[in-house]
């Protein structure tokens, strides 16, 4: 679709497949939204499994220990890093969403806040990952 400009000549329709050309698409706002959805779905499905495995404490100590033992294997240990990474991003970006909604300058600083979220995520993961991996791999 072409758009009439003030000068009267229509702007050329783009044939570019690149996602760009608007303030929103392909920028920080879009990618934070995409990541929020993906991490949210991943956390939801983990939550379903996690409630079921924890419910095994009501069955017997052996049943619970057998299943929780699989959480302590190296592969699952790496999976826990991914899980915590998803939770921490979702949590910090959720605060960013709240600030965009309720802080009068929120939408003006949404892009800056995205990089603050990434920064806080890195700091949190640096605090968590080495300690967790040492626990997983060294006993």
């Amino acid at each position: 679709m072409s758009v009439k400009t003030a000068g009267g000549s229509p702007t050329a329709p783009t044939t570019s497949k690149r996602i760009s050309g608007t303030l929103y698409r392909g920028r920080e706002g879009m990618w934070s939204w995409v990541l929020h959805r993906i991490t949210g779905v991943a956390i939801f499905f983990f939550l379903l499994v996690h409630i079921l495995d924890t419910a095994l404490v009501r069955v017997s100590p052996e049943a619970y220990n057998a299943v929780i033992g699989t959480y302590q294997t190296p592969i699952m240990g790496v999976g826990e890093v991914a899980l915590v990474a998803a939770i921490v991003f979702h949590a910090f970006n959720g605060l960013r969403i709240i600030l965009i909604d309720f802080w009068s300058k929120g939408s003006r600083y949404q892009k800056v806040m995205f990089y603050v979220v990434i920064g806080l995520w890195v700091v949190t993961m640096v605090g968590f990952v080495p300690r967790h991996l040492i626990n997983v791999f060294s006993h």
Binding site: V84, H132, N135, H139
Partner: peptide, 24 residues
């Protein structure tokens, strides 16, 4: 959840310390 993760994964031996006795 941050409190849950800290107590279960960061304190002591982290995930390696979780068993029936811990949850009990």
């Amino acid at each position: 959840i941050f409190g849950h993760l800290f107590v279960n994964l960061m304190v002591g031996e982290g995930v390696k310390a979780i068993d029936f006795a811990f949850v009990g």
